[in-house]
Write a protein that binds this DNA or RNA. Structure first.
Lengths: 144, 144
DNA sequence: CAGAAATAGTTGCACTTGTAACTAAATCTA
DNA sequence: TAGATTTAGTTACAAGTGCAACTATTTCTG
């Protein structure tokens, strides 16, 4: 019987393979040069955009679950890249912010991240990048 | 300092989030209904297309490393879904093939996989799906 | 306002995954 | 052709990840 399904043309497979290839490149750089994994990097990126976030808001912003956020935050606090302040509105929660060291690290990484993005996606035109972004958002929404 | 890098618009992030959302849906189905993880599923899919492959060829065809292939193959052999024959051309290697049970399982899963793909990607037009496939292949090539 | 239910975040434990070292066989080289 | 090098695949151990259970606090309900 001939297969109806060709792995090579199966979109979930193509998506996974492309994502893994990109992640491998990026996480390699972050880990080697800065000792960060992707979860830690995402937290730093969000806190650089808007500091003083609760873990729950970071879950939302990074699309990671609360365990991943909790562990990444603990590692960053341990390295004094992030500090904890208590949340006067809710004693179960707290606020996380970048320290000066954390911001300095971000200022080092961010340009490198943009360069890497340009390396990987610069082969697409501006319109193609916009289209890819749009298609990925729609697929993501359909998967939830 | 205002951020130059907005995580929300960072393509490696968008790609990873979309891929994770799709993989979560798919792997949930395979595991619950058939007890397969994604690596095992990929091996079955390739062996259904063209049986009698060596592990090295399966690495190439599935884009997985040799450890992942070795472990997935061991699990499938254990469940009698795959058999091993020796390779007369190279004593270090061997051939893997689907058993009748393996093919029967494939025949059950394949239609379901196509249905799931249609659920997730059916929100895109045919042209958009083709464009997504093309863009993903180009990005993947750039990342290697 | 007391007790029940829900929520925020963390931790323990089992399972998965990745890196490095290993075995066995083939190939290269002098 | 003996010895060194490379290659195919597996295994052992460490690190990462996810689920379930847990603590502490808040919110709901009668």
């Amino acid at each position: 019987m001939a297969s109806l399904l060709i792995l090579e043309r199966f979109l979930p497979y193509r998506l996974s393979v492309a994502s893994n290839a990109v992640s491998a490149r990026i996480s390699g750089t972050y880990r080697k040069r800065f000792g960060l994994n992707i979860a830690e990097w995402r937290l730093i990126a969000i806190l650089a955009e808007s500091s003083r976030q609760t873990p729950a808001l970071l879950c939302e912003a990074t699309q990671m679950d609360k365990i991943a956020v909790s562990r990444a935050a603990a590692a960053l606090v341990e390295r004094s890249l992030v500090t904890i302040d208590n949340n006067p509105f809710d004693g179960r929660s707290h606020f996380l912010s970048l320290t000066n060291d954390g911001r300095a690290l971000y200022n080092e990484i961010a340009p490198l991240a943009l360069t890497t993005e340009a390396d990987l996606f610069g082969i697409l035109t501006r319109e193609e990048r916009a289209k890819l972004d749009e298609l990925l958002r729609r697929v993501e929404a359909a998967a939830k």
